[in-house]
Design a protein around this nucleic acid. Structure first.
Ligand code: MN
Ligand code: MN
Ligand code: MN
Ligand code: MN
Lengths: 226, 226
DNA sequence: CTTCCGGTTTAGCCTAGCCTAATTCACCGT
DNA sequence: ACGGTGAATTAGGCTAGGCTAAACCGGAAG
């Protein structure tokens, strides 16, 4: 049976697979979930016998089709609740993660679909991450790139964050950056891969962004509005 | 620490205390929660050492002030979520109990209060039950009585149900009864304490209600609208 | 005052998850 | 081919929460 804990494990594996191709290590799961590697190994045995992961000792884990579907459903609920909390209840984007982490475990297709409809079938959550459809496929995803890959002179609209941790989001708040913000890339500093930008519509002339920041911001070409 | 399970126990005790004065029996708790009496006894020891109940073997349990406050907070969240599900997401009143039973365990005063504000600080949930305030007090409660205590000739507006089980609510649906329905008491049958009523605005001339039904409906005097 | 009986409690066991400590293994460099 | 080393696994233990079966009251009836 799906429990809160197994859902968290499956979701973690899904998100780690996104980066690391295949063969997620038990220690990376442990780190992401704040658990001990030994606990993860134990859980992998259970997930395997339930048919949700492919696992062989010392060889890492992969989701099965069933496991991936469960994980996607959890991600869907997580992002819908985040959208609700920010869009409907008025929370800030750095306040909703922990709440959604709990709400995502209320499993009810009726509830999820009604919520989705009430929100108007949003494409992305408050952090710019795409919300899966009920069937587990992703909604139209625009081609986007990391700000760290942008060239000088480009006008980039921020459309997503690579890290939804509260402290990163609050850092962005204090820099004056948010979803929809448009920045013009002024200068690149190869030494530490940091970047100077101008925030269009902002008060400061220039703003300096560390590589830790630029590597966690997604952007698309800004279109001057009509 | 408050867990989902302890919250369910505290809530059950609160609701059983409402009827039985003081000294709730372990078996009544067991029945309400669908658990074994032995399990309840075990949990009572834990609740006692956490200071949430007064308990002495063979003498039943009562909530302490702290225990009562926790229970009230859970009831508050339960009823707010029910109101949200029916009023905002469009669920029927017989579909929301099990969902609220899960949602009520997401503990966050911010979330609860924001939800309350979004809903416009409702007085009652979709079953007519009063929603506690954040401080644990009840909101303005109208004087109401059980339909089984109504006299012939009275025009009664249904304002609450004593039993929120799905099957009872569906039975009311099939009778054409709901919150706000006005009925005129036509005849009482002392033999089985059943009652014949006319549903104001309904299609049928008369409707026969068993005592099982009339003892679970709350009413107030119907005021003819202007 | 004694006996019964049904509700209550205890005793013992189980599963899910998690932890620490000890062990094992894969892989890399020599 | 051979160790070393650090990651991964196993072993063993803990808590929460449940269940069954057996033992244990307390109050009602004789
Ligand atoms: Mn979670
Ligand atoms: Mn998000
Ligand atoms: Mn509950
Ligand atoms: Mn209710």
């Amino acid at each position: 049976m799906l429990t809160e804990s197994t859902e968290n494990y499956l979701k973690a594996i899904l998100q780690l697979e996104a980066d690391k191709a295949d063969g997620v290590s038990t220690s990376s799961i442990a780190e992401r979930l704040g658990a001990q590697p030994a606990s993860v190994t134990g859980m992998m045995h259970k997930l395997k016998e339930r048919g949700w992961v492919k696992y062989e000792r010392y060889k890492g884990v992969d989701l099965t089709e069933t496991g991936r579907r469960h994980a996607m459903e959890t991600v869907r609920r997580h992002r819908l609740w985040e959208t609700f909390l920010v869009g409907t209840l008025g929370f800030a984007w750095d306040e909703v993660h922990d709440l959604a982490e709990q709400l995502e475990h209320v499993r009810s297709t009726d509830l999820t679909d009604q919520l989705d409809a009430f929100l108007g079938h949003p494409q992305t959550d408050p952090h710019g991450d795409p919300i899966p459809n009920a069937d587990g496929t992703f909604r139209t995803s625009v081609g986007r790139a990391l700000l760290s890959d942008a060239q000088v002179g480009i006008c980039a609209k921020i459309v997503g964050v690579g890290d939804s941790q509260d402290d990163f989001l609050r850092h962005l708040n204090s820099l004056g950056l948010g979803l929809g913000t448009v920045v013009e890339v002024k200068e690149l500093f190869p030494f530490d891969r940091s970047m100077a930008v101008h925030i269009v519509g902002g008060v400061e002339a220039r703003c300096h962004l560390s590589s830790r920041v630029t590597q966690n911001l997604w952007w698309v070409e800004a279109v001057p509005d009509a």
